[in-house]
Design a protein around this nucleic acid. Structure first.
Lengths: 191, 191
DNA sequence: ACCTGAACACCGTTCAAGT
DNA sequence: ACCTGAACACCGTTCAAGT
């Protein structure tokens, strides 16, 4: 990817560190993603990240922000085909399937995004923006069927609960995740 | 509590370590619960825990097992008053409120119990027993209303999702948690 | 302005040695 | 059998010094 020769000054180290962190997260899991291992992967010294981030958490916020942008893009993909209740219902089911599939295909990233390891530190602009984008996808889809805040929370809770129970290995994951999501969504009534 | 004079051999160090871990978890959070800090709290050397546990995870499994026993006891408390659908529905709602209240009042313990930090290591007898006890409470309550595995998973997912979103600080927690739980459970249809 | 190297105070775990 | 003390390989973070 990077064919340019390395100099003392890296150039785009900030983004390179975020990229390196995402790679370690995918390949080795959250436990192996130390600030030092991120720096090693980016080919710089252990102290170099502190030129671009206040601390490890500040870097991880940007990794989570990347996660939310990827997540939001996936959620924006399925579009309702029409305006009938059946179309809107099908649209919501598809969002649920996308939600749970994202969690299973990006386990460590999903845990970083929705876990509370980062909840005490201040969020970045992009983190907040991408997080809202994801939330709005779900909120809009639900409110076309039932325009109540509690309805969005009910649907989100059900799908998020299934996703976390799967990711955290508290339930067996069915061979067809899509069917499993739809089999519980039949008990979500938005009348 | 312990007025006996300390000797070289502790006596009940195994249980004392689990107790110390629970205390640190409640008072200082999951990040501060190192094996060394647990040993310090129990008044022994850093290597002493290895006489009773293979490693840190083996100790944490017992802490989680304690959590599940506490959780199961709370879930067993509300009993259905009768056999009408309304009684059974009210029983399920009460279980949901107990579930979410437990999560909020034992945040770090709840995260340890349901997170995946411990999912790769082998579980102890008591962990499995207490975990099943909790699951059976929920499963029985749901199946009296709707005798399908998917119904249990739907109800559990919805309540567990709300609990995790609260504990992980992804949603605002209403002043009355009970009302918030009931306001989403109205969208759970077990017809 | 950005990066390095060494240092500090922490970890989990191992192991010879003490009781 | 149970516990200690020292050691090893890690961490996150700081800071003077280099480019």
């Amino acid at each position: 990817m990077n064919t340019e020769k390395r100099t003392y000054h890296h150039g785009g180290l900030r983004d390179a560190l975020i990229e390196a962190a995402v790679l370690i997260l995918e390949e080795e899991g959250i436990a192996k993603m130390s600030l030092r291992s991120i720096a090693r992967k980016a080919g710089v010294s252990q102290a170099a990240p502190y030129s671009h981030f206040a601390n490890k958490s500040a870097l991880l916020i940007e990794v989570a922000a990347f996660g939310f942008s990827k997540f939001s893009s996936a959620l924006e993909n399925p579009v309702a085909s029409g305006d009938t209740p059946d179309d809107l219902r099908e649209h919501l089911a598809k969002l649920g399937v996308v939600y749970v599939n994202f969690a299973m295909e990006n386990k460590a990233l999903f845990q970083l995004m929705f876990g509370d390891a980062l909840s005490h530190i201040s969020k970045s602009e992009t983190y907040l923006k991408e997080g809202e984008r994801a939330y709005n996808c779900i909120d809009k889809a639900v409110r076309r069927l039932k325009d109540e805040a509690a309805a969005t929370l009910a649907a989100w809770s059900m799908v998020h609960g299934l996703a976390t129970l799967m990711v955290d290995q508290k339930i067996n994951v069915a061979p067809d995740v899509g069917n499993q999501v739809r089999s519980i969504l039949q008990f979500l009534s938005l009348k």
